[in-house]
Each structure stands twice: as C-alpha cells, then as structure tokens.
C-alpha cells in the first residue's frame, strides 16, 4: 500500500519525501483547498520546486483542490486546476463535481482522485464519479468499517485510499455545517474549519477556556490534554448531562488494522495533517513507513510515541472497527 503524506509548507513537503512518503499531497495558498490557514500552503513557484524535488526521488505529488466552487468565482478553481496540471501534479484531489467535469474535459489524461470532501461512500456514488469523470481513486470518508471497505472495493472500478492517522472529523465529511453555523465559514466553501479569526483562548484561574465565535467550546483543567476548538470536539451541557456531544478530542490511528485494510483491497493509506508542522510530518511519516514494513506484532510499539503528538493525546480506530460510539 502507498503512504500518502501531508505537507502545508515546502519544508514539510521535503520532510515527507525524505521520511519515505510514496506521495505527498498539498494545496495552493487560497480557498481552493480545505486547509486554507494563514501562512500555510504553496505559491506556484513553491509547488513547482516541490514537484521537482519529489519527482527526482520517485515520489508523486497530489494537489488538493477540494473545496466547492463559489458561484460566480469558478475561475479561481479552474485556474488552480490549470496551474496544477501545468506544474506537473501527478493527481488532482477534487470534491466539486463541476471542477471534476472541467478537469475531465480539458485534461482527459490527468489523473483525478475523489476527495474525502466529496463524501462518496457507496458503490453508486463512486461508480458515477468513475464513469462520468474518469476518477482513478476515491478517498473514503471515515465512516466505514473495515468490512464495509472490503465489500466496497470489490464493487467499484477505482482504487481506494483511506485515512490511517491524524485528525478525525464528524461523520458528515464534505457536508458538515458546524463551522458555518458558528462562524459563517466552513472547510467546504472557504477551506477553513473553525477559522483562527474566530478562535479565542483565555485563562479562568487554572482552567483554559477555548471559544469559537460566540460559543464556549471547552474548559480544560490544569492537567487535562486539550483539543482543537471545533464545535464537533466541544464539551457541552445538554439537559442533565455534561460531556462531548459529538466526539471526543481524539485522533485516528488504524495501524492495528493495516493487514485487514490490505486484504480489503485498499491501495493507499493517508495521513491527515497539512496544518501540522514539519516535525510532526517527519515523525509520523517515518513511523508509519516503518510500521508498514514491520511485523504486525511490532507495529503498535513503533507508533506509540505518536500518541503524545495527537489531539487529546489519545487515539482511536474510529469507525473502522465499529467500537466507535
């Protein structure tokens, strides 16, 4: 299985390549990609240089253009696709059907991957994208069990890529409106989930309070590991209960399921984290690369250290083994 690794900056890109990535995915410095954060992402010259660096080492570059086009501003997305193709991207990761149609028509030889943001999770949806736009690979949403994935791979005519490590989203990828509800901006349309412009942290005695827009997301006690200030990871009072309403601040880790995913027909494992620093990228990529070639019994120990770098300092296998609540 290929290891698909994140890069938010050229430095992180080189780290991912040097640490053993089979492919690195990244995006332009604008709202065409779902990690549109300040100071992050690539200018055109930076992408060109990075693609060259990867290509010389036999590593592929995937360019994520995985937000949905805004009516009237389609030119921004079309231009991004034109530039990514011209710069030599090995694949474009797309979510918007209109953009898929544009790429399929204008660049029929360009490899097209279906982003997780397209939320294609069943045979009919995926086959439609394969037949209509020539999609070569689908990145599955993190809502399926390993058994679901195994059934699906047998029914579709494209490769399957699944998330193996990193941040988790709620079970509505590409359709989540929680960030829009709180801030007016979303990863789907603006490339930002819980934008930093709306995030505040403040101290209340020994407690750290995180706020998003007008909402208090969480209050972390002095020795409590913290998480991202997103509504989906918020701790709320609902009726008589007090706790995480959607999901806990915890990260995905399916290293224990590598064999099962391989047998299920998965072609590639994806690491989430374009917003993370190069130290994280280097550590996670090299650990997972070693885990992929290690004996199953050795894998957990190889990635144990990564837990301390994860959100909430805890990991879960999420929906993959159905114990997820």
């Amino acid at each position: 299985m290929e290891l698909i690794c994140p890069a938010g900056t050229p430095s992180a890109f080189r780290e991912a390549v040097d640490a053993g990535a089979d492919a690195v995915y990244c995006g332009f410095r604008d709202e065409t990609n779902a990690r549109n954060f300040p100071g992050l992402n690539f200018s055109r010259p930076e992408l060109k240089e990075s693609i060259g660096y990867a290509g010389k080492r036999g590593v592929q570059t995937f360019v994520a253009l995985n937000t949905f086009m805004r009516a009237g501003s389609e030119a921004l997305w079309y231009k991004a696709a034109d530039d990514a193709v011209e710069l030599g991207a090995d694949a474009l990761i797309l979510a918007d059907f209109g953009l898929m149609a544009y790429v399929a028509e204008k660049y029929p030889d360009q490899r097209l991957h279906v982003s997780v943001q397209a939320s294609a999770s069943n045979r009919d949806a995926i086959q439609f994208l394969v037949e209509a736009f020539g999609a070569k690979r689908v990145v599955l949403p993190r809502i399926l069990t390993v058994q679901d994935i195994a059934r699906l791979t047998r029914q579709i005519d494209c490769e399957v890529e699944v998330f193996a490590f990193g941040g988790l989203c709620v079970m509505a990828e590409g359709r989540c409106s929680l960030s829009s509800y709180a801030t007016g901006k979303s990863p789907n349309m603006n490339g930002v989930c819980s934008p930093a412009s709306h995030v505040k942290y403040r101290r209340d005695g020994d407690t750290m309070v995180s706020e998003l827009g007008a909402y208090t997301i969480n209050r972390f006690g002095p020795d409590e590991a913290s998480g991202y200030p997103t509504l989906c990871k918020g701790r709320f009072e609902i009726g008589e209960t007090h706790g995480y309403a959607f999901e806990d601040p915890v990260s995905l880790d399916v290293v224990d399921h590598i064999e099962a995913l391989r047998e299920a027909g998965v072609s590639a494992l994806k690491i989430e984290g374009r917003q993370r620093g190069k130290a994280y990228v280097a550590e996670v990529v090299s650990s997972l690369k070693k885990a992929l070639s290690a004996q199953p019994a050795e894998r957990s120990a190889l990635v144990a250290r990564l837990r301390s770098m994860s959100e909430g300092q805890r990991t879960t296998s999420g929906a993959y083994d159905k114990r997820w609540r």
């Binding site: 020795d223 993370r276 959100e311």
Partner: peptide
C-alpha cells in the same frame, strides 16, 4: 510541533490566533 505542545498544555496562546498561526507556519 506547536499543536502537540498545545495539546499537552506545555504552551499557551492568547490574542489574535490568525496572526499566531501565520507566525507558526
């Protein structure tokens, strides 16, 4: 990794988070 240090509570940040994120990156 700034996020990892933030999760472990070894770092704390206040004020303009966009500016902080831009500096970190």
């Amino acid at each position: 990794d700034a996020d990892a240090l933030f999760f472990s509570r070894e770092l704390s940040v206040t004020g303009d988070m966009e500016a902080m994120l831009a500096l970190r990156n």
